[in-house]
Design a protein around this nucleic acid. Structure first.
Lengths: 206, 206
DNA sequence: TTACAATTCAAACGATTGTTTGAGCCATAA
DNA sequence: TTATGGCTCAAACAATCGTTTGAATTGTAA
């Protein structure tokens, strides 16, 4: 097991605290305590609190969108043209849910952070999505469009956004209230993933 | 125009501030200032900050679910049996979006508060949904089930939750980034409402 | 080893937070 | 008028916040 740098430990503990207590419950003193470092280390490494939170978002979102792009690339390089819609949706949804199921690497915590950032209308997150990742989102929207040529372009656009809404809802475990206790985490997320893909696929039927 | 009581003014200004700056940005001093009253009035009328926020949620949610129930009652009293699925979905979705479009009465602000409360995993909200409103949600789920007897009960359950996810996403204006500037608020929400109902209806096709 | 930069640390800063206090205001009822 | 109770107010409380400072420590290259 590798030893984590102070910077990494701070990012991890921030992620953990936000996912547990939300943005309201954050304090740099708690963060530094859990990261087993000094209070001033946070400002030393990240400048200020706002920047720290932004770095938490950036670190993971880059991974998430990288993975999505990779899967879409593979699909578009394949023989099917247009791509199989269900696979396109899987390429978008699965990485997010895989991440949120990856407790070991803190992915689950991050997904909750992400959902909270959405709710808080983080300007930084907004910029990230509308600039850095806009192309990826557009690529997915186009791939969906091509496989459903008879659907109005505007309608596809709306539904893709609704699907993203459901995804965020699930990721953040919003519906946890309704979750059965008999399922393990990985079982739950497998079912969830399948159900969500089917749901999305169905919603895009012509 | 009626004169609002101090209590009402405090509730309204709290709603406004949360919707603008999120739960993070709340301060009782700002709240009392906007409510044009004294700082101590908040504690006098609501005991403490947490209780104040809970009262904001409760006041509006009661209205929302009352309206949903009323619409469902009307449908189930009608001639169609089972109820028309699209109308059931409308009875669930429309009140929420009407509220979020009702700027004058602060409904829009509340919907953003609600979405933030979801993200913050408010225990109070959780209890409200799983206790006080659980019956209503179950009634809607059953109504959907009856109109789609061939769909697995578990599948209906999942999809209803996904639909709620999309609804919250839309209510909180999460997708505002992608919103065209040429539409007025009411035009936007009309389209949004129709698209969401169609989306939900489609996702529940057999 | 020495010198220098990077990092960590305890301590303090001023600002802001939720809450409490007790005096004052203002209506209504005796 | 006087007395009472609901309400508002300015002021102060202790606690916590993010940030800064300067000294101590660590790691690295000469």
């Amino acid at each position: 097991m590798s030893v984590l740098s102070t910077k990494e430990r701070i990012l991890n503990s921030t992620e953990k605290i936000i996912s547990e207590k939300g943005f309201t419950g954050i304090s740099l003193r708690t963060i530094s305590a859990i990261a087993k470092t000094n209070l001033a280390a946070v400002n030393y490494h990240f400048g200020n609190k706002e920047n720290l939170i932004e770095m938490v978002l950036e670190r993971r979102l880059d991974n998430l969108f990288e993975l999505r792009v990779k899967l879409l690339d593979e699909l578009e390089a394949g023989s099917e043209n247009p791509c199989n819609l269900k696979q396109v949706l899987q390429a978008f949804i699965t990485p997010a849910l895989t991440m949120s199921n990856d407790n070991h690497q803190g992915g689950k915590q991050f997904m909750e952070v992400l959902a909270r950032a959405y709710a808080e209308k983080s300007d930084f997150l907004h910029d990230l999505l509308s600039k850095r990742y806009a192309d990826v989102i557009k690529r997915f929207a186009n791939a969906i469009q091509r496989s459903r040529p008879n659907l109005n372009k505007r309608v596809v656009f709306w539904r893709f956004h609704f699907i993203m809404g459901s995804l965020i809802y699930v990721m953040a475990d919003f519906g946890a209230s309704s979750r059965s206790n008999e399922l393990s985490d990985s079982e739950y997320f497998n079912i969830c993933c399948n159900e969500l893909v089917d749901f999305a696929y169905n919603s895009l039927s012509e």
